Amino acid sequence: MYAVFKRELFSFLSSMVAYITIGIFLLVSSLLLWFFPDTSLLEYGYAELSGFFSLVPYLFMFLIPAITMRSFAEERREGTYELLVTKPITLWQIIAAKYLASLVLVLFALMPTLVYWYSISKLGFPEGNVDSGAVIGSYLGLFLLGSAFTSIGIFASALTKNQVIAFVVSAGLCAFAFLGFDFTSQLIALQKIETLVVAFGINEHYISISRGVLDTRDLLYFITFSAVFLWCTRLIMGGKK
């Protein structure tokens, strides 16, 4: 399993796609956070990163599909998947290795954003006047959100040999999982069960964790969500095998 994990991670890092994708993510987040007047923290006047954490999920909808789209699609397109499954490794181990490698890449993209936390802390009055508990909770929420989106991306990559199709399907599923249930709950026919419908969406649980309080129900939701999509990936790849 470790060999597959290392191969997946380094094959992505050895290509320009990794650096371009992560670079675009950091550039866009920086522009939104510091330069664009409507979202700039300097215009907001408060030493907090709530605006940043509300923007990143939308950037994740494109970053993570770009990372995961090649996981199985490229293997099947180049014919190396058949060689991989003949190795003494189970299908679950292959899926887990690719999932963890993609998740590590998401963490690589997030790590430079810690500079924003440091900058806000220095700009605060008095210096260091930042709600660190909320920031830590929000970063934990981003990690869990990234794990959920990564499971969707792995699933989408298993559906097709075409990386572009995998990207589009993954981005669409991520958008629906994050926002779809909120919009669906506004339908007149569902207003009586609005709270229940919203609870199925990722956004509700992400906002809850971002407040700085870790609820076991939110943690269980993200673990279950990721497990369901990885299980679906196992069904698809098991059938193709």
Rank of each mutant, 00 (worst) to 15 (best):
L100Y: 06
M69I: 00
G79Y: 07
R76C: 04
T86W: 08
S71D: 12
A97D: 02
Y99V: 06
L100P: 01
I94H: 09
L84M: 08
I94E: 14
E78W: 05
K98A: 05
T80Y: 11
K87M: 15
L83F: 15
I89P: 08
S71C: 13
I67T: 08
I95Y: 07
M69A: 00
T68F: 01
T86V: 14
T68E: 01
M69T: 00
E74G: 00
K98Y: 06
Y99I: 07
R77S: 14
T86Q: 14
I67W: 11
I67V: 15
G79A: 09
P88T: 00
Y99W: 09
W92K: 13
T80L: 12
Q93K: 15
A97Y: 02
A97P: 02
R76M: 14
E78I: 13
L63C: 03
V85I: 12
L91T: 09
K98N: 04
I95F: 08
Y99A: 04
A73C: 02
Y81K: 08
A66C: 12
R70C: 02
E82H: 11
I89M: 14
E75C: 03
L83M: 15
I67C: 10
P88H: 00
I95H: 05
Y99T: 05
I67D: 09
L63M: 03
G79T: 10
R76L: 07
E74K: 09
A97L: 01
W92N: 13
Y99D: 04
F72W: 06
Q93F: 14
I67F: 11
P65M: 10
L91Y: 11
T68I: 01
I89D: 09
R70I: 10
R70E: 10
T80V: 14
T68H: 01
T90D: 09
K87F: 10
I89G: 06
T68M: 01
E74D: 05
T90W: 07
I95L: 06
I64G: 05
I95D: 04
I95W: 07
T80E: 10
L63F: 01
A73G: 01
S71Y: 12
S71H: 12
I64Y: 04
Y81V: 13
Y99K: 03
T68W: 01
G79V: 11
E75F: 03
T90C: 05
I64M: 08
T80P: 10
T86C: 13
F72V: 06
I94K: 10
P88K: 00
